[in-house]
Computed example of a mutant assay.
Amino acid sequence: MINEYFMESPVGYLKITESGDAIIGLDYVSEEDVAYNDIPNDTVEQCIAELDEYFAGKRSHFDVPINLAHKGTSFQQKVWHRLYEIPFGETISYKTLAIDCGGPNYSRAVANANGKNPISIIVPCHRVIAHDGSLGGYTGGLDKKEALLGIERKRTL
Score class of each variant (00 low, 15 high):
residue 99 I to R: 09
residue 53 E to S: 13
residue 103 G to I: 02
residue 142 L to W: 11
residue 130 A to K: 13
residue 25 G to T: 09
residue 44 V to E: 01
residue 113 A to W: 01
residue 122 I to D: 04
residue 125 C to N: 15
residue 73 T to A: 14
residue 32 E to Y: 12
residue 109 A to Q: 15
residue 44 V to N: 00
residue 115 G to Q: 05
residue 67 N to L: 06
residue 24 I to M: 13
residue 30 S to I: 09
residue 121 I to R: 06
residue 67 N to K: 11
residue 39 I to C: 08
residue 104 P to F: 05
residue 116 K to T: 12
residue 94 Y to A: 01
residue 122 I to F: 08
residue 53 E to V: 08
residue 103 G to A: 00
residue 70 H to A: 15
residue 36 Y to D: 14
residue 43 T to I: 12
residue 46 Q to N: 08
residue 37 N to G: 07
residue 11 V to T: 00
residue 125 C to G: 15
residue 97 L to N: 01
residue 50 E to D: 05
residue 121 I to P: 04
residue 39 I to D: 10
residue 39 I to H: 08
residue 15 K to C: 10
residue 134 S to H: 04
residue 69 A to W: 05
residue 75 F to S: 02
residue 145 K to Y: 06
residue 85 E to D: 01
residue 53 E to P: 06
residue 28 Y to G: 11
residue 125 C to Q: 15
residue 81 H to G: 07
residue 135 L to V: 06
residue 33 D to F: 10
residue 32 E to P: 11
residue 87 P to N: 11
residue 16 I to Y: 11
residue 95 K to E: 15
residue 130 A to Q: 14
residue 107 S to F: 10
residue 105 N to W: 10
residue 114 N to V: 10
residue 96 T to L: 02
residue 37 N to V: 07
residue 73 T to R: 14
residue 23 I to F: 03
residue 95 K to P: 12
residue 100 D to H: 02
residue 92 I to R: 07
residue 58 K to C: 07
residue 119 I to R: 04
residue 147 A to W: 13
residue 83 L to V: 04
residue 138 Y to Q: 02
residue 142 L to E: 11
residue 74 S to W: 10
residue 121 I to E: 06
residue 69 A to E: 01
residue 86 I to M: 02
residue 136 G to C: 04
residue 56 A to C: 05
residue 22 A to M: 07
residue 100 D to S: 01
residue 142 L to P: 03
residue 30 S to Q: 07
residue 125 C to Y: 12
residue 28 Y to M: 14
residue 34 V to Y: 08
residue 82 R to A: 14
residue 100 D to P: 02
residue 103 G to Y: 03
residue 7 M to I: 15
residue 113 A to K: 01
residue 106 Y to L: 09
residue 12 G to F: 02
residue 117 N to P: 05
residue 91 T to N: 08
residue 77 Q to C: 11
residue 61 H to Q: 14
residue 128 V to Y: 02
residue 49 A to P: 06
residue 118 P to W: 07
residue 87 P to L: 06
residue 69 A to P: 05
residue 102 G to P: 03
residue 112 N to P: 12
residue 68 L to F: 10
residue 59 R to S: 08
residue 81 H to C: 07
residue 99 I to F: 00
residue 105 N to V: 11
residue 52 D to K: 12
residue 99 I to P: 00
residue 130 A to C: 13
residue 105 N to R: 14
residue 130 A to R: 13
residue 116 K to P: 09
residue 116 K to E: 14
residue 106 Y to A: 05
residue 60 S to Y: 11
residue 136 G to S: 04
residue 129 I to V: 04
residue 30 S to T: 11
residue 40 P to V: 08
residue 113 A to V: 01
residue 88 F to E: 05
residue 105 N to E: 12
residue 85 E to P: 04
